[in-house]
Each structure stands twice: as structure tokens, then as C-alpha cells.
Amino acid sequence: MLRPKPFDHKTCFSLKEALHLLDDSAGGIKILAGGTDLLPNLKHRLYPETGAVLSLRNLPELRGVETQQNELIIGAGERLADLSSHPALVATLPALAATFGTIASPQIRNMATLGGNLCLDTRCRYINQTDFWRQALGGCLKSHGDQCHVVPGGKNCVAAFSGDAAIALIALEAEVELLSVQGQRRIPLVQLYRSNGAAHLTLHPNELLSRIFIPLISGRKLAFRKWSVRRSIDFPLVNLAVRMDSDAGGNVQKLVAVVGVLAAKPKVFPRLADLLESGTLDARGIETIADFLFRKCAPLPNVPYDPGYRKEMLRVQARRALHALLQEDLLSVRQD
């Protein structure tokens, strides 16, 4: 078994205490929720500066699902397994619940939290390896080195954000609450990310992601699709969500696509409705949009599998997601 570098394990019994600990540690502490991303990364020794982890285990403030004024509010500490079958979620946003149910594997969903999935670190074939492996490679932009192996000569880390939940939630215009000792701020989820794979979160080192707000809008539909080699466990190699808002007459008001696993920041296409000549989502419109996304997205060899094939898959999955929007029952589905 791989050993992480020895670290301290800190627990706290109130949100306030947690925020103070974060504030005092000046970035040398990592937040431990489910641990399904953090612990493998610590074993790979990806965070040499980390001397401690802060466990969120005893913070009931981070749990709970409630509906308030056309908004669904989810505590960041809710576990993915619970959310995927949560009655409030299944009733109001079945496609989102189903999306949560496709993440990783049952065992991982039993531990992993929604907040943790949104803060998932970026991934790359050249980073998510052991310390020995990375040293044999000679390091990279994200790991004690100065060269990029994905984009030779590149100066910006293009490690890929590989979360699934964020893709669906950004499509739904979700917002997140970030807490610190200085106070709280609420930002659109999409603004949590920036395009630097080595530091892809805009979350400050002393901040904690506490709640997720999802607007509930009638006439809104969501479809999420992903492709991974295996039907369980694997990180996605292609994922995308499409959301459509229609008026009572069935005319498309807004059509949005969000694409993940390209680089550090999910890619948002907010005005796809403009591409629909007929104003409704028909077979021709689906092809047009799928082709548009195919042209606009360029998968890189940052995660396994041939980028050219992943680009092809993106078109197919976009087509299938858009077709799913036309159906009554919206379930997010995987690879076939």
C-alpha cells in the first residue's frame, strides 16, 4: 500500500471552529470530507506542503436538503449515495439525482460528499501517479517541474477537471456558498473554477464550501451523459450536461451545454438556442448543436484515451443528451 507523508488529523465540532482552523493554517491544511479524492492524492504525495487535514465529520451544519422559495438547498457534506436517492431531489430534479448516482462507484458514493465532488482536484495522466513515477518523469507544471507533457512548451497546466456533479449543476445555474471567518459569499458555481490546472479553484485557502443552491424553474429540463471505459469506478473521459428552458408553447427559450474533462474549467455554451432555426429542438437542430460542440471542444491527451476519439464521443453524447431532452422521463445515462 502507498504511504502518505505523515500528517496531522484535526477535528472540530462547530463550523466556526473549522473556519478558524482554516484561517490559522495559512493553506497548510486540506479539508477532509469523504476522503475519496484527498486520500489517494495524499498517498501520491501531490501536496508536499500539506501538514494536516481538517475533518468535517462532526459538522451537522453541512448536512441537509431543503426547498426554499423555488430553490433547492443542499448541504455540501451530503453524501452522493444519499443524494442520488433523496426523495426531494428525485421529485424535483430526477436527472440530477441520477447524475449523482453515476459518479464513481457505490462504495465511493457512500463516502464522497457533494462538496468534495465540486472541489475535486484536477486530473492528468502525468500527475495522478506516485511520487516515484513523477520523479522518473522529471516532474511537470503541477508537480515539482516546469514542463508540460500534455502540451509541449505549454506554460499553463491543462490538467482536467473530472467532476460529474459540477457539470450538471452549472447547467442548472447552481450557486455555492463559501464561508470564512471574514464572512460569507455566494457565487455562481461556474465561477468556482478557473483555467489553471495547478490551482483550479477560486476558493480561498481559508474558505469552506458550505451549501449548494439550485433554482427550481418550471419548464426546465436537464440531461447528463458521460463516457468512461468501465461502467463503474472510472473517472469520466467525456461528460456533458444540456439544459433546456421552454415556454408553455414548447418554444425553446434557452438551451445551455456544459462540457467537462477538457481542461481545468468546465466549458459553458450558454446560447445554443440561437442555433435552432425552427425555435424548437428538432432532429436538425440536434445535429447542428452536436456539430457545433464537436467543433468548439478540443480534448487533450491529459487524461487516458485517444483525444480524437474523445472528441468524436463528445458529438455522439451531445446528440444523445439532446435527444433525451425530448423525452418525458429524464434519466442521466452512461455509455449506451
Partner: peptide, 20 residues
Amino acid sequence: ENGLLAAPSLLDYRIPTALD
């Protein structure tokens, strides 16, 4: 290219799950 194994872990060296 440099002789490093591309997938020296059971996450990247994929063997089928029960679903596969």
C-alpha cells in the same frame, strides 16, 4: 515514450467491473 508504465495502478489499468 520514456519507458514509464502508462497505467501502473488498478484505476488506470482497467479490468472489468461486475457491470462490464
